[in-house]
Design a binder for these strands. Structure first.
Lengths: 228, 228
DNA sequence: AATAAAAAAACGGACGTCCGTCTTTTTTTT
DNA sequence: AAAAAAAAGACGGACGTCCGTTTTTTTATT
């Protein structure tokens, strides 16, 4: 699979995302008409992620957000109860979608080697398709409240556990060789994250997402498939 | 070399760092007695890095800093002209030290393979010895002014270039095999950065810095030394 | 279909708080 | 006592949030 195919298959529309948020937070959203809510949530998230790709969430003022989203400050507070909740909303939703798609895609694969390749590709393609969400989720994690931070860490570890599982299965099946599965999973994650954390670098150098994904797979397999 | 040896050899005392900052910013520091300056700069940097390991630089108020450093708000402004300059000072100094030590250590090595091992170890050991500085420099880079951001990017690329050079030499000497030197250097950097970005994870799992460094070297060499 | 009434949504001024910074006063050192 | 350093206090500005009002949309009535 290449990225262009991935994008067609995995449909992550803004309406879906906003709809899901509405569903899960119906009580804290004061506006009643669902159409309006979804329409404006899209505006709010788009604007937030755009602004926060340039400055920190903390540095973004509600006035900034109002100006960029086209809603007034007052209207904004019909969609979230306070600024921190907006941060939590975006974080939670980003994690949920990423986790769902990743799990879905892996379930289709057969052997451990294929599973690993698909997991790597899916994660990188996902972070490409939802770059703003991934970047935001990572970079703003430290500004969360303690309980929300815990959720973020759990999610991070859960993603890692997916890789640990795949590699462990591969080792049992004698497809892979590894004397430290957890560290292997860790450095794979580090490479995956580099794609969305240093996107400016790869864009500048015209490294395509397909090229990067293939490279990470190659490095990983060089380590795991190697004959002792 | 292991970490405990590294720490003995590479002497990075707080006095030295502060002394260097004083030297390079004599004109913007209003206090005259050098002993006082160094004494208080240490307090200021310690407090800043400690606070900023818990919250963002922006979220740290000058009042926070005053309370933690033991100086008054007024006194603080004798050591930097404004809050942004304090950010720049720490960033600049962190990059300078890291770059100096890394360059020094590599110059001692012989062949490309050894150079690569030393570069990886030095970088990880450095980020361990100066964890707060590295974390701060990375995480706060996006809150810099445009010109300062440019310096940060240059520094990042310069570090990467060191690895590109080593690998290129190795390929020429037929010690390494690589069809994409730049991507190889990129993912090595990603693995190096993971050590100080996800330190909580490794600490929790009792992964030692030596163990991690050896592992990164192993992964890298599995990719570079592999027979085609 | 046109109009009136009601409901929903959006607006934006105002408030209290906290921030970075500047100025003045006090303390310490020489 | 003079000079240097530190502390304390003051100030204007920006922030998140609230809430009374206006505008827009929907529903009801003729």
């Amino acid at each position: 699979m290449i990225y262009s195919e991935f994008k067609k298959i995995v449909n992550i529309s803004k309406e879906d995302i906003s709809g899901q948020i509405l569903e899960q937070n119906r009580d804290s959203i004061k506006v009643k008409k669902e159409k309006k809510v979804i329409e404006n949530l899209i505006k709010i998230f788009d604007a937030t992620l755009e602004i926060c790709s340039r400055k920190s969430f903390q540095a973004m003022s509600i006035r900034d957000l109002a100006a960029h989203s086209g809603l007034s400050r007052g209207a904004l507070y019909s969609y979230f109860t306070n600024k921190e909740e907006l941060l939590n909303l975006i974080q939670m939703q980003g994690r949920q979608i990423a986790n769902r798609v990743l799990t879905e895609q892996i379930s289709c694969a057969g052997g451990a080697a294929e599973k690993l390749r698909i997991a790597i590709k899916t994660h990188i393609y996902l972070s490409e398709a939802m770059h703003n969400w991934f970047y935001f989720t990572y970079i703003e994690a430290r500004n969360l409240s303690k309980p929300e931070q815990k959720k973020a860490i759990e999610s991070e570890l859960q993603t890692e556990a997916i890789f640990v599982d795949i590699i462990t299965t591969g080792v049992k099946e004698k497809v892979f060789v590894s004397d430290n599965v957890i560290l292997t999973a860790s450095v794979i994650k580090a490479m995956l994250q580099d794609w969305y954390l240093k996107r400016w670098k790869y864009t500048q150098r015209k490294v395509s997402v397909d090229e990067y994904a293939d490279f990470v797979i190659k490095v990983t397999e060089a380590s795991l498939l190697r004959k002792k």
